[in-house]
Design a protein around this nucleic acid. Sequence first.
DNA 1: CGGACCATTGATAATTGTCAAAATTCGTGG
DNA 2: CCACGAATTTTGACAATTATCAATGGTCCG
Lengths: 238, 238
Amino acid sequence: MADHYNCAKCKDKLCMHKVPIFSSLDAEDLRKIMGLINHHEYKKGETLVFDGDEMDCVVIINEGSAKAYKNTVDGREQILYVFSEGDFFGEQNLFSGQASTYSVEALQAVKTCNLSRKQFQELLYSFPEIAVKIIVELGTRMTRLENALQSIGVRNVDNRIGGILLEFADKYGTKNETGTVIRLPFSREGIANYLGVARETVSRKFSQLENEGIIHSLNNKEILIPDMNKIESIAGIN
Amino acid sequence: MADHYNCAKCKDKLCMHKVPIFSSLDAEDLRKIMGLINHHEYKKGETLVFDGDEMDCVVIINEGSAKAYKNTVDGREQILYVFSEGDFFGEQNLFSGQASTYSVEALQAVKTCNLSRKQFQELLYSFPEIAVKIIVELGTRMTRLENALQSIGVRNVDNRIGGILLEFADKYGTKNETGTVIRLPFSREGIANYLGVARETVSRKFSQLENEGIIHSLNNKEILIPDMNKIESIAGIN
DNA sequence: CGGACCATTGATAATTGTCAAAATTCGTGG
DNA sequence: CCACGAATTTTGACAATTATCAATGGTCCG
């Protein structure tokens, strides 16, 4: 299983600085909180939490990325979030006392900072601005969920493919003189499970876009998009 | 447009008691906050907020119910939430400063309690327990969204119909000796826009369930379900 | 280089959406 | 209280989209 060791080792360089919810705290407060944090590490493919697990800490992603997903009884997977550096989860369960409502699995090697229930609650009462930051962050996340729901609910598959490309370009894209290069966070199957369609459908749509010259596969995980505007019109800007 | 008058009129009987996020406050604190609240009223079909509107207050539903939804450019509607007594919205926009990300329309006559941005923020800083309550409530709402996303993403229409019946039975159902009577919060079209399917598909599935004796339409807005277990197996309990 | 895994393609079936028409329901006013 | 008209709902026929199954091809890593 996963290593874990106290945060003293990570000095100032790790976690705290990357975590937006702590960004309003001064150096001394940061130091205080840092003593409370435990670190964990996971390899690609390892599961951080299973749907239904009791959670007793908030987990903050410090390095790498992970997918949060739900499975139906017949094995179909719906991906809800892609968590990366600075994202956190488990906060709901601390207050409501309910078990996790999704599983979280490492997409790459992942390092986390964990804060126990009690420590986290104390933090919120001592620093109301952290609570406000969390509310803001949850709001952002809800907006993304709402958009995803609309997307899956009323848009056709082409729109959704366009939408996911925009989203990934924003989060994982780099621009160069030939266009935008996106390093996809997951496989075709992952994309399918994110969009709520079949694996094969994603393949077909990608091939189609490739034939039309709108995207160029560099390899399975990287694609080049010469003209982002075309993607926007496929996504059917809302 | 809508009436509005100060909360002094509503005495203790209205709003505050119904609103879970204020439930931890004592009588005096309640009285203080009450002075800050403005009331509004809306008729059925009126819009409380348009997608894209700047919001400068948190709106708490005091009476009636409303749907929150997004429209695509080509007029398709996806319903995200049904807000009823005690639910609130607009909190995200206050902190992040962004415009509303959905429209809200009254499904019946609606009365609201509004708290301005400034008042709400002060409240959060003076009463951290309110912030915690809000985080809990947002967590509940996110869990519902996550379930809805999974539902639309990977479940077939029968499952979804079953799911919505369970949800409505829970929120709007009453039991009697013949079974559970559900008063549906919206029309067939509304149900369709909630489930992300076509109006006609909802009609067909309801007819089918009626033929199988699993549901009985009392009228367009009320259905009787003799055996809830059958609905659960249709929903494909997760 | 080999093998496991992942991605693509084709053929076909199943599901749901769309359009059009008929039937039902609901609210209003006489 | 009934009748009428508008709005909503149901039903049918058909088209479009996507899922499924199966086979092939490609890629990555030890």
